[in-house]
Nucleic acid binder design. Structure first.
Lengths: 125, 125
DNA sequence: TTGACATATGAACATATATTCATGTATCTC
DNA sequence: GAGATACATGAATATATGTTCATATGTCAA
């Protein structure tokens, strides 16, 4: 197997058996599902949106209350809520000129809490 | 309460009681903890990194195997692994010139699976 | 020691993103 | 109807991000 003339790479003989690698590759997330999963995490990957969801975990709120809570303009908040709405993380209920937002999937709070635990773990190094 | 001369805003009298709002504000994630939580989600918010973590959920892998699995250059993969390592999501073990990466916190796979469930839910609209 | 290899990293570039500002729409009060 | 309010949205801009390319570091074989 140690042919010096071979155009050898790690993937070909140093590491895992190519067939095993291929099997793993087949089981990896791909396509629209992969994109959707990453998209949800991307939405959670912004401090403003984390705070919005955190605020909504205490119950339904109107846009201007949310703006007060996160310390941003109603416009900025509305833009973010639009993104969260598109991913079905929050839902809007209209009453007159008010829009009351609430969590569309309380599972999200679980993600938040789990991640909070991760970052709270002491660094072993 | 309906004083027409008052410089009234939603936050002042239309919606929640200001004191209640203030209590919620005090309980919101802030500072370094907020930033860290968002940072972890931001890392998970990229298809390449999701695939890397997904691949590592099947066990330890060297960089070149990971590059094969995700279909990117070893350089690109190394850059991403560096970010994941900084957030203690993966850990590296060196053996000679090889670097074997593995999950540093299997909790992450839970986050992945939970999110997968969310995006798999049928759209009620 | 020489050359090949596995990985790491800095710079650069193209793309994506978050907020601001201006404006639009719908609703409410007077 | 007129003016104010609550929210939404398009454009613009400044910043962040992911990949590529070139190069560096450490390891192994001959």
């Amino acid at each position: 197997m140690y042919l010096s003339t071979m155009d050898a790479t790690c993937a070909e003989f140093h590491a895992s058996d190519p067939a095993a690698l291929e099997r793993i590759k087949e089981r990896l997330l791909t396509g629209p599902l992969l994109e959707s999963v990453a998209e949800v995490f991307k939405l959670l990957g912004d401090p403003t949106r984390v705070r919005l969801l955190d605020a909504l975990s205490h119950g339904e709120r109107c846009v201007c209350d949310l703006a007060t809570l996160v310390g941003l303009s109603e416009s900025a908040v509305s833009h973010q809520l639009r993104l969260l709405r598109a991913a079905r993380l929050v839902r809007a209920r209209r009453t007159g000129r008010m829009a009351f937002y609430s969590l569309d999937d309380h599972h999200v709070i679980g993600l938040l809490n789990d991640t909070r635990k991760h970052v709270a773990e002491p660094d072993p190094s």
